[in-house]
Design a protein around this nucleic acid. Structure first.
Lengths: 203, 203
DNA sequence: GCTTATTATGACCGACCGGTCATTTTGCCG
DNA sequence: CGGCAAAATGACCGGTCGGTCATAATAAGC
């Protein structure tokens, strides 16, 4: 007898509206009322689907990072260092369109770095990314493709940081396509030579 | 006849207090009263030195960038790869206290990434940093300390990005001291092996 | 020690904001 | 239809915060 609503879809609708409002004025300058208005709902209704404003921002980030995470998981295990390096290169070689999102992301969610909840969400993503790399590195070490004396978890995590730096700079500072290509090519080459156990073969 | 005060020093004192409070709770969650209390002054007094809370945050970032810029210029030329690597390590090995600045930076200036002027200001800093590294790399290539086949400007710039990533993650995600130490040690080791012209000697 | 311009104070104000809840609306089902 | 539970509403509340201003304290020069 009661009225029925697709809660998942409703949450998505609200998140979309929130993202629109946030993009316009920034998170902290946007009130919950603003979001409600953009969603065509009353403020109280939002609280039926989210516990707080912060829960909304967190959910938006979740959504974004969940997509990223799926992308990572798709990465095949790989039996060669070169394959691994190629994966790194491809990860940093994001399309210009997607890279401009980072600027918006920081513009919109920069203020959210005040929140511990928000920060640990993002931190969790990079920890998982680092762990993923560590796993692959360990595997390649077992195969003799990577020098064994490296501490895989540390390398994996710092690799995630470094790659984030490269991708971030590309997006934030609008580094041109050609220049970016050269940068990531050199970076991958240096990292490869650093990880490879044998002296680099001649080109 | 009147009471006299060193306004510049007073502004600095207030900024120091503000930075301390911001680092603790974030800018948005910090009230002007909190800052006043930390500075040992009354709220009204702060408004004799700054027009608004926002003016304080802007002044903090100005100060920070000016200091960073000076630090870069100080970097000695260096005649060995190991010396260069040690410089890189030291640059990433920032004190935890200073690293909390990054969180504040993104919180305050995240929204400013909408502005091209602001963005190129920051981009300029990293371009200069990359050029500085490129110069040192070229010099080390001439000395045979670094493989000659690398494109120094690209390596230099991507090095700046990667190091920014590492420093950023440390600050934003509060990576613990020991873990951070291990990460940068491994990163420097890999980069060193990647840049070194001869096969890495056995350990 | 008195004068006076400068500096310091903190109670106060108006505005706003996140979140609640009593009430109303909606729409499924018998 | 009409009954009813789920869903939606928005006025309202408690609290906070940035900024002001009338008043008090301070110290330099006479």
């Amino acid at each position: 007898m009661p009225k029925i609503v697709d809660k998942a879809k409703m949450r998505d609708t609200i998140l979309d509206a929130a993202m629109t409002v946030f993009a316009e004025h920034g998170v902290h300058a946007s009130s919950v009322s603003d979001i409600a208005q953009a969603a065509g709902l009353a403020k109280g209704t939002l609280y039926l689907y989210f516990d707080s404003k912060e829960a909304m921002t967190t959910a938006i980030v979740d959504r974004h990072f969940a997509a990223l995470e799926a992308q990572i998981a798709r990465g095949a295990p790989g039996e060669t260092l070169n394959g691994f390096l190629e994966d790194l290169r491809r990860t940093m070689d994001i399309p210009a369109e997607q890279s401009s999102f980072h600027r918006v992301f920081f513009e919109v969610f920069g203020p959210s770095f005040a929140s511990d909840a928000f920060t640990s969400h993002v931190a969790g993503f990079f920890d998982r990314l680092g762990a993923h790399y560590a796993e692959r590195i360990t595997h390649l070490q077992d195969l003799g493709e990577i020098t064994p004396h490296h501490h895989a978890p540390s390398i994996g995590r710092v690799l995630a940081s470094m790659m984030d730096g490269v991708v971030l700079h590309r997006g934030l500072f609008g580094i041109a396509e050609r220049r970016h290509q050269r940068m990531i090519r050199e970076a991958v080459a240096v990292l490869g030579d650093g990880l490879r156990p044998l002296p680099p073969g001649p080109e």
